[in-house]
Amino acid sequence: MKYFLKALAIIILIFTIFVLHIGVANTLPYPFNNINVIFLILAWQIFFNNRPRAIWYMLPLAFLMELFTSAPFGINSISLFVSLISTKWLLDNLFTNRSVYIVFLSSAVSLAIYRLVFITLIYFINFFFYHVKIGVSKFFLDVGVEILFTSILMTGFYFIHFFFIKKFNPKYLSDRHI
């Protein structure tokens, strides 16, 4: 029963994340509709919780994204997978500090890796299989907007996590105050 409830909770969570992503993409005006909610939440799990199991959420979310996108199947999933693994490596080895700047920078770098892998795979498919049209300069303008706003939101999440979840958490209070 316990495992059933846990599985149900995970399914509802994934459903909610994807519905939120649809809502943001369809409802908000440009440039806010470029915010990548799925990436935001997955990256948040890696930044703040540091649990490799959390990365399993990527699988159903990436699959759901593939169903409603114009890119060939698999491009988004592979790009997301590679970018999140790269993010984890960067956070463990390069951006080890957890300041505001690092959160913003690592979020921006991760999204840049995501889009770089995405466009590389598109060119690969164009070379070997069929032709998928892409206009590089204008594509990166939209991507730049996506990186900027998603990173800003990630930084906002960091503030919420740091001040309200961590700082006001009683277990972090010093013994001197007891």
Partner: peptide, 13 residues
């Protein structure tokens, strides 16, 4: 029924 969920393109579904 909606727009492309992957935000870099101006497409509708």
């Amino acid at each position: 029924i909606g727009k492309n969920v992957e935000g870099a393109e101006k497409t509708i579904i």
